[in-house]
Structure formats: structure tokens, C-alpha cells
Design a binder for these strands. Structure first.
Length: 209
DNA sequence: GTCCTGATGTGCT
DNA sequence: GCACATCAGGACA
């Protein structure tokens, strides 16, 4: 699979516009690969390239948080695309999602792994780990490394404290697989990752397409 | 390297 | 009361 890569902004660090997120979720999910995710803390930029994502789409998706309809927790999934959805699981970990599609249609893309680009020392401090390879190679880990928790849920990704921009990577291939860590809906090949990237969280060969 | 287990808080069917 | 879009650490090889 080849990436879909239109030029959304001239500046590789300018936040992507609202229209970027208001598209079909599977399209946005694949297109997010290779983009920069930037978190600003105390004026410092913590930045990584998105290398692994998963799509969660609509009330009919048995793995989606919206499968039981609108609740307090998943409310932000029902808003228009381009906002963050951060939730807390296993009593310990935060998960970062990007809301997609139009208002009232609940869908989001889970950011599962990043390749660190800048602010590595701050990430080490926040994670309490030294090895670069352990900083952002999983959805819980990257939230730790970027200091992301539920207080950042519902913020506008076209603003400048947490945003996504064009990025600066070369050619790559996109691979897909079933989603990880869920029990239902595993047959949907809605996990996408940059083939061969060392920061991808898992390479379960049985999950590979 | 692999496999297994325990930790832990929140929202809900 | 229980399930949960995970991770770290220990046992073993």
C-alpha cells in the first residue's frame, strides 16, 4: 500500500487544517502516518513522527467506545473532526486519539506509536526511561513521553499546544493488520503502520495482512 | 529473546 | 462488580 500524501500546508510545522480531519476515518488514519505530532510544554516542543495508528469507527464497530451510544466519556468522539480524545485505561495509562469525520458521527484514530524527533531529553524525564527505543513505541508510552493526560481531552488540534503537521519523512510503505488489545472487531484490518519502522509497537506475524 | 502475571482507576452493557 | 484500545518486570531459555 502506498501512502496518500496531498500537501495540506506549505509549512511542515503548521497545524493541519480542520478539513484534514473531516474525511473518512480510514483515509485520515493512513494519511496520519509520517506526520509530525507536536506537544508544547513550557514553551518546549516535544515532537515525533506518527508511525502506527488504529481506526475506531462508529456505533457499529464493536471495539469502538461509541458502541453503546453517546456517554459522558465518549462525548468528544461525536464532535467534529480535529479535536483530541484522551481517555484513561487499566488504572494507569492514557491513550491519545484524534477525532475524525463530521459532527455527530463518532470516530477517531488512536495514535499508537511515534518516532521521536525533538525534545528527547524532556521525553526521557517524563517517561523515566533512557533508551530512545522505549520512549514512544506504544500508546501508553507516548502519552507519558509527551505529558498527555485526560486534561488534554477535547482540545482543538488546529491550535498550538498539541497539533499535527506535515512532517518530513521520505518514502515509506503502509502495512495493515487487525487492531491490538481488543477482543471484538479484530477481523477489521484497521491498524496501519509504517512498514519496517523500529518504533512500531508490535509485529505479530499472525496479525499481518 | 519469549511467556506470564500483577498493577490500578474509571465508567458502565 | 467487572471489563478495559497497556506496560514493566520476573522466570526461563
Amino acid at each position: 500500500m502506498k501512502p496518500i500524501s496531498p500537501t495540506w500546508t506549505r509549512d511542515k510545522l503548521a497545524p493541519l487544517p480542520r478539513e484534514y480531519y473531516a474525511r473518512p476515518t480510514l483515509e485520515v488514519a493512513q494519511d496520519l502516518l509520517g506526520k509530525y505530532l507536536t506537544r508544547v510544554i513550557d514553551g518546549e516542543q516535544l515532537r515525533g513522527t506518527i508511525v502506527e495508528v488504529e481506526a475506531y469507527i462508529g456505533e457499529d464497530d464493536p471495539a469502538c467506545h461509541a458502541r453503546f451510544g453517546l456517554t459522558n466519556r465518549n462525548r468528544v468522539m461525536y464532535c467534529e473532526g480535529g479535536f483530541s480524545y484522551v481517555y484513561f485505561v487499566y488504572g494507569m495509562y492514557n491513550m491519545l486519539n484524534v477525532v475524525t469525520e463530521k459532527s455527530a458521527f463518532p470516530a477517531a484514530v488512536l495514535i499508537r506509536a511515534l518516532e521521536p524527533v525533538s525534545g528527547l531529553e524532556k521525553m526521557r524525564e517524563l517517561r523515566g526511561k533512557d533508551r530512545v527505543a522505549d520512549l514512544t513505541n506504544g500508546p501508553g508510552k507516548l502519552c507519558d513521553a509527551l505529558g498527555i493526560d485526560t486534561s488534554l481531552s477535547g482540545i482543538d488540534l488546529t491550535s498550538n499546544q498539541l497539533y499535527i503537521s506535515n512532517g518530513d519523512v521520505g518514502e515509506f510503505n503502509i502495512a495493515s493488520s487487525g487492531r491490538i488489545g481488543i477482543k471484538e472487531g479484530t477481523e477489521r484490518q484497521w491498524r496501519f503502520f509504517i512498514e519496517g519502522n523500529r518504533f512500531v509497537s508490535k509485529w505479530d506475524s499472525e496479525n499481518r495482512e
